[in-house]
Amino acid sequence: MKSALRIGILVVCAAAFLMAGLDLSFGTPAYTDMDDYMLAHGQEETGSNNIVTGVVFDYRGFDTLGEATVLFTVVLGAGLVFRRLGKKEDEYEYE
């Protein structure tokens, strides 16, 4: 009974997500103005042959800065969570 309920909920949720994705076409996005501009001008404006790196580090530099900050914050949080769980006589006092 309970497992039947679970499977029913799973099927309904999966059907909902699949229905939402059915009318999307693969490889032909709706709005391509920004992509066309970057593909046409990215190489001369950023000076890098790899357009992905040019977008990530030049056009979208603030996103990369935020990503680096997130990583820094993750390390700070992990250091806080794990700080005193080891024994006192541990040879590796991290902080």
Partner: peptide, 26 residues
């Protein structure tokens, strides 16, 4: 910027796992 992000990610991932390893019981 690539080199900067590279050494930052290296340090962050290494520290994350070192801290997890150091937080374990003996």
């Amino acid at each position: 910027l690539n080199i900067a992000v590279g050494i930052e990610v290296l340090g962050a991932m290494g520290i994350l796992l070192l801290v997890m390893l150091g937080g374990m019981k003996g």
